[in-house]
């Protein structure tokens, strides 16, 4: 059997030139990998924010006990704390939206 015959036999395969199902599966895997990567990117910021809040909690508590904010003031302080916790996620979402 000569090289040309062998080559012709080996070159024969039934794979399509384009395979949307295969591409979709790959791109889903890529999206999953990117999502995990972004979570890992965010993790240090979230951990830092949590640690900072934990460190500052006693001072914040003393301050809140000493000063009477009233209902509106207390709600504002609570909102600021929640917003500072959500900020990294918001920034990430904004970044992704502007890159689309």
């Amino acid at each position: 059997m000569d090289d040309a015959t062998l080559k012709a036999l080996l070159a024969d395969n039934d794979l399509p030139e384009r395979d949307p199902a295969f591409r979709l599966a790959v791109m889903q895997g890529v999206a999953r990998r990117r999502f995990i990567g972004e979570l890992l990117d965010l993790a240090p910021f979230v951990a830092g924010a949590a640690a900072l809040l934990w460190l500052l909690a006693p001072q914040i508590e003393v301050y809140l006990r000493r000063v009477d904010f009233g209902l509106l003031g207390s709600l504002t302080v609570a909102l600021v704390i929640v917003a500072s916790l959500l900020a990294p996620t918001g920034l990430l979402t904004f970044r992704r939206m502007t890159e689309t």
Binding site: N13, E17, D19, R23, V26, V30
Partner: peptide
């Protein structure tokens, strides 16, 4: 990022046949 994903999808389209054929034989 989205743009590069679209470009990568085109690379998948272009090279999937060769890679899969090689791996099927391997």
């Amino acid at each position: 990022m989205r743009g590069s994903e679209a470009a990568f999808a085109r690379l998948v389209d272009r090279h999937q046949r060769a890679l899969r054929a090689f791996l099927r034989r391997a």
